[in-house]
């Protein structure tokens, strides 16, 4: 990114300066020289003022995490202006496409916290935000001055979460599975182990914790009643929009099923997140889904056995996973949702 960039008006203005300069030089008319001098002054002030505007100005941006695509979140922008004069008309440009412009018309000297509207990011993904850019066109409309600030931060935008309750209710499940959907996790005790951050607090065994002086949780024996597999067909998709929708559905299904107490497994072409429960497990699955891409369908072979509740999410009719549709409890076609 160049430090100074001209706008459309700026390029026209520059052309006008050249032409008027030639006219002045040709005619020797001092009144044209006067206009020429004014135009050069406007351009020069435009360049210098915009650079001075960004001089000794730092900004710090905090994005409220976790971030989900197309879901409003709160951000905080703090400016630190070391100059003795205020800065005007500063835009903070993130290397991520966000819904609202981060713009401060006035930045006083010292520390200023900028009021920021609720933002949302359009595309899921893992963004390595190496720098953020401060941009200003002040005082005119002829150019933009940019200042890049190194922040080196990883921003993960998870897929958009949608309501999948209706989707789940429409899936044909066995009686046992139906029962499990209603009753939740009430199988045989398998073992006791130490609590891991992010797990459901209801699985904590308080008596055992008191005895051992450690936070212990009960682990139940794996029962097909409480196992759920979300299989995302990420074979070559014909339509990027449908694929994005299928990723959102898969993510939302994971979240909903974990919320209902299932041990959820995420299966995609090439990547699998084994069974697990709790928030930490959910975000493991969401991590995979945040950067998942459609791949060549010929490489997609399902090696895992299908057990418990299994839901296949597809976005096209040509992928290799389509063949296992009949083995699953339900198939969700993103093209129809």
């Amino acid at each position: 990114m160049r430090k100074i960039e001209s706008t459309k008006e700026g390029r026209r203005f520059l052309l006008a300066i050249i032409l008027i300069g030639l006219a002045a030089f040709n005619t020797g008319n001092n009144l044209i020289y006067l206009i020429f001098a004014m135009m050069i002054s406007l351009l020069l002030v435009s360049v210098i003022a915009s650079l001075v505007n960004l001089m000794k100005l730092d900004a710090h941006v905090e994005l409220g995490e976790p971030l989900f695509a197309n879901t409003p979140f709160k951000a905080a922008v703090t400016f630190l202006n070391h100059k003795r004069i205020p800065s005007y008309s500063i835009s903070v440009v993130l290397p991520i496409d966000v819904s609202e412009k981060l713009y401060a018309p006035y930045v006083s000297t010292g520390k200023t916290v900028m009021p920021v509207p609720e933002l949302s990011i359009f595309k899921r993904g893992k963004y390595m935000v190496r720098s953020l850019m401060l941009r200003t066109g002040f005082p005119f409309i002829f150019l933009h001055a940019n200042k890049s600030m190194d922040i080196s931060k990883e921003v993960i935008v998870y897929p958009e979460m949608i309501d999948v309750k209706k989707v789940l209710s429409g899936i044909e499940v066995s009686d046992t599975e139906r029962e499990a959907l209603v009753k939740g996790n009430d199988g045989d005790l398998f073992s006791m182990r130490e609590y891991v951050y992010g797990e459901e607090s209801r699985s904590i065994d308080w008596k055992a914790s008191a005895r051992t002086q450690k936070t212990m949780v009960r682990e139940y024996a794996k029962s097909s009643d409480r196992l759920a597999s979300v299989i995302l067909d990420n074979g070559t998709s014909e339509n990027a929009e449908y694929f994005e929708r299928s990723v959102s559905i898969a993510a939302s299904l994971c979240a909903e099923l974990i919320n209902r107490g299932y041990y959820v497994r995420l299966i995609t072409c090439k990547k699998v997140v084994p069974y697990g429960n709790g928030k930490v497990h959910l975000f493991k699955a969401l991590d995979i889904l945040s950067e998942i891409k459609s791949v060549d369908s010929t490489e997609c072979i399902l090696k895992e056995s299908i057990e418990g509740l299994s839901i296949l999410v597809i976005s096209s009719g040509t992928s290799g996973f389509n063949k296992i549709g009949h083995l699953c409890s339900g198939v969700v076609d993103a093209r129809n949702i």
Binding site: A24, F25, Y33, A37, V45, A49, Y106
Partner: peptide
């Protein structure tokens, strides 16, 4: 809120215009 920078920029441009007018190279005739 932008009254001050407007006045400052206007004054600077007036001064610069005068300086450029004096300094710009020119020919004796057309």
């Amino acid at each position: 809120p932008y009254l001050r920078p407007i006045v400052a920029v206007t004054m600077i441009i007036l001064v610069l215009t005068s300086l450029f007018f004096i300094a710009l190279p020119r020919l004796r005739s057309s």
